[in-house]
Design a protein around this nucleic acid. Structure first.
Length: 213
DNA sequence: CACCAGGCAAGTA
DNA sequence: TACTTGCATGGT
C-alpha cells in the first residue's frame, strides 16, 4: 500500500513538474560545498555564494581548504549563516585531510555506510546534508528527507506527526527500488512541490497535484 | 512590515 | 529525552 502510494506521488509530481536534473553543480566537490551552504537557505542565495567562489578561482578542495576562514566566510556571505558555514566547511575539509589524505575521491569511494558515518562525524553535517552528499555527490541510492518531504507527507496524512528523519527515510527506501536515479529525481520533485503548492502557510492541499491520494 | 528558505548544534530543564 | 535558541542573507 505504501509502495503504491509512493509510486503514485512520484508519477504525479513527475508529470506535473517534469525532470529536474539535480544536483545543480559541476563537480562532486561543488555539490558537497553546496550541500552545506544550502542548509536552511534558499538555493538562489547559495548560487551567489558559489559564484563568488568560482570567480575567485577557489572552487577546489586544495584552494578552498587553504583559504583563511575569514576570507572563506566573506565569499559565502550571501548564503547566510556565513560564519557558521565557513566553520562547517573547514571541519569537513579537515576530516577529509586527516582521514583521507586530502583526497575527496578516496572519501567518495568508501562503502556507503562508512561514508555516511564519516560525514556525520563532522560537526555541522547532519543527516540531511550527509545524505545529500551521498546521493548527489557520490551517486549512492540513499533517500534524502527534508522539511518539504515531512510537510507534504503530513499534509496528506501519510505519516504521523511524530515521524522522525529515519522513519521517513525508511518509508521510501523500504518501498521503492534502490535506485539512485529515482531517489535523485524524487527528492528534487518533492522540493518543487514544497515550494509550489505545499508551502508552510498555504492551506492544506489547496488544489494540488496530489489531491485525493 | 512579516515570513520563509533544500539545518545543525548547543544550551536548558 | 524534549524543547528552545542562535546563526544571517535575500526574495516575496
Amino acid at each position: 500500500m505504501a509502495h503504491t502510494q509512493l509510486e503514485e506521488i512520484y508519477t504525479r509530481l513527475y508529470t506535473h513538474f517534469g525532470q529536474q536534473q539535480w544536483w545543480p553543480g559541476d563537480t562532486p566537490f561543488e555539490v558537497m560545498v553546496g550541500a552545506v551552504l544550502t542548509q536552511n537557505t534558499n538555493w538562489s542565495n547559495v548560487e551567489k555564494a558559489i559564484d563568488n567562489l568560482k570567480r575567485a578561482g577557489v572552487m577546489s578542495f586544495e584552494r578552498l581548504s587553504q583559504l583563511p576562514v575569514a576570507l572563506l566566510a566573506e565569499y559565502i556571505r550571501p548564503a547566510g549563516y556565513y560564519n557558521i558555514k565557513a566553520g562547517r566547511l573547514r571541519n569537513l575539509f579537515s576530516m577529509i585531510r586527516q582521514q583521507y589524505g586530502g583526497s575527496l575521491d578516496q572519501l567518495l569511494e568508501e562503502e556507503t555506510e562508512t561514508l555516511r558515518q564519516a560525514l556525520l562525524s563532522v560537526k555541522g553535517i547532519g543527516q540531511e546534508t550527509a545524505d545529500s552528499i551521498l546521493l548527489y555527490a557520490a551517486g549512492r541510492p540513499v533517500f534524502v528527507v527534508d522539511a518539504y518531504t515531512y510537510r507534504i507527507l503530513l499534509r496528506h496524512d501519510l505519516i504521523p506527526e511524530d515521524f522522525g528523519y529515519g522513519e521517513i527515510q525508511e518509508l521510501f527506501m523500504d518501498n521503492l527500488s534502490s535506485d539512485a536515479g529515482l531517489f535523485n529525481e524524487y527528492h528534487a520533485l518533492l522540493v518543487c512541490a514544497g515550494k509550489d503548492f505545499c508551502k508552510k502557510t498555504s492551506p492544506k492541499c489547496a488544489d494540488c497535484p496530489l489531491h485525493g491520494l
